Amino acid sequence: MVPLDGGRRGGNGLGYATYTVAGAGLVESDASLQAALGQVFGVGGIILLPVLLWQWPGGLDTAAGSVPVVYLIAVPTVIAYLLFAAGLRHLPPATVATLMLLEPVVAAMR
């Protein structure tokens, strides 16, 4: 039986696990939270840049398209991942990743 998502879910989980372990390693090496997240997201952005260029959604080069993107980057993403990195400072990566799985449940309850 083929999963509805075409079998891509394993790649998503592997990417998230890699991000979590890499972030924990950077945080444990006494890097600041901002530096650790900057490194992880910077590498991730470079890896995904060809996908963005290949699947260009259009509109991102206009003010109307870029303002929501900047907001989504600056407010919910930065704040959430700073809290995520702070959790990595105090808990093992497996515990943090498991706790993060509750986020969709909390969002669905709203």
Rank of each mutant, 00 (worst) to 15 (best):
Q34C: 12
N12W: 07
G10H: 06
G44S: 10
V43R: 07
T18F: 14
L4I: 13
I47T: 04
D30L: 00
P57M: 04
Q55A: 11
G25P: 03
W56Y: 10
G11W: 15
V27T: 10
G7V: 11
Y16E: 11
T20H: 08
D5Y: 13
G23I: 06
G6H: 09
L53Y: 06
V67P: 00
G44A: 14
G11M: 08
S29D: 13
L26W: 15
V27N: 11
T20Q: 02
G11Y: 11
A63F: 00
A36F: 14
N12D: 05
D61Q: 02
A64Y: 04
G23R: 02
V51T: 12
W54Q: 01
L33Q: 09
I46S: 05
G13D: 01
D5M: 03
A31H: 10
A22E: 09
L48I: 01
A63C: 06
S29G: 05
D61P: 01
G38D: 03
L4D: 13
G15R: 12
G42D: 08
Y16R: 09
L37A: 15
G11C: 07
G58D: 11
V21A: 11
D5W: 04
D30I: 01
G45L: 12
G45I: 11
G42S: 11
T62G: 05
L33Y: 09
G6E: 09
V21P: 10
N12Q: 04
L52G: 02
G7S: 07
G6W: 06
A17F: 14
G10K: 09
A36H: 10
G6T: 12
Y16N: 09
P57C: 00
L14N: 06
L60I: 00
T62W: 01
G25H: 11
V67E: 01
D61E: 05
N12E: 14
Q39F: 12
Y16K: 13
V40T: 06
L14M: 10
V51L: 08
A31S: 09
I47P: 01
T62A: 10
D61K: 02
D30V: 08
